[in-house]
Simulated assay, not measured.
Amino acid sequence: MHAIADFCVIPMGVTASVSEYIAECQRVIEKSGLPYSMHSYGTNIEGEWDDVCRVMKECHEAVHAMGSPRVSTSIRIGTRTDKTGQTMQDKVNVVHEILAKDKK
């Protein structure tokens, strides 16, 4: 089943700046080969359900390996069966097309 997830990994019990931890998580995501888009408060990732969940687990493992004693993650996952082949970018493009009509 194809899934699009938005998740935010939160290292706990570490310094106030978590940029190094998030960079390591992004390395894990990049290595997965799944399409993704990092934003200011998390990452969108898409692929088969099991692959998406595996990558989120690997992010937890990587952040723990860096010394974070606790990791919390907020996750939203969407799936659909009425359409196939719609990507994260397709969803964004549709909204941009609607907004472009406002400027005409």
Rank of each mutant, 00 (worst) to 15 (best):
V52W: 03
I45S: 02
K57I: 02
R76Q: 01
Y21C: 05
E30R: 10
M66D: 07
E58I: 07
G42P: 02
C53V: 04
Q86T: 15
T79M: 12
K83I: 08
K104H: 09
S72W: 01
Y36F: 03
Y36E: 00
S32H: 06
T84K: 15
A16E: 15
T84I: 12
C25E: 07
D102W: 02
D6M: 10
S72D: 00
K31P: 09
N93L: 13
L34Y: 01
T81S: 13
E61M: 11
M1P: 09
H39A: 00
I10H: 05
E61D: 14
R76T: 02
T84V: 13
L99E: 15
H60L: 07
V55L: 07
G42Q: 03
W49D: 08
R70I: 03
V63I: 06
A100T: 06
I75T: 00
I98R: 12
A62P: 03
I10A: 10
E30N: 07
G85S: 13
N93D: 15
T73E: 00
E58H: 12
H60D: 09
S74I: 04
T43W: 05
T73M: 01
K91Y: 11
V92M: 10
N93W: 10
S32G: 07
D102N: 10
G67Q: 00
K83L: 14
W49K: 04
S19Y: 02
M88V: 11
P11M: 02
S74D: 00
S40F: 02
D90V: 12
D90T: 12
D6F: 08
C8F: 14
V18A: 15
M38L: 05
C53G: 05
T87Y: 13
F7A: 07
K91Q: 14
H2K: 14
H60F: 06
C8A: 13
T87F: 12
P11Q: 04
N93S: 13
A16F: 13
D90S: 14
P11L: 04
R54P: 11
E30Q: 10
V92I: 12
P11N: 05
E20M: 07
M1A: 08
S72K: 00
M1G: 11
N93K: 14
C8E: 14
E20V: 11
A23K: 11
H60P: 11
D82W: 14
I4S: 11
Q86H: 14
H39N: 00
V55N: 06
L99A: 15
G13M: 08
T84Y: 11
R80N: 14
E30C: 06
V9C: 02
R80I: 10
Y41V: 07
V28S: 09
A16S: 15
P35D: 02
C59Q: 10
K57V: 08
V63T: 08
A5G: 07
G33A: 03
Y36R: 03
A23P: 05
D90W: 15
Y41P: 03
G42W: 10
Y41I: 07
I4N: 06
I22H: 08
Q26M: 14
D50C: 03
I29H: 08
V52Q: 05
T84R: 15
D51P: 04
D51E: 04
D82G: 12
V9I: 06
A3Y: 04
A3D: 01
P69V: 05
V14E: 11
K31E: 15
R80P: 09
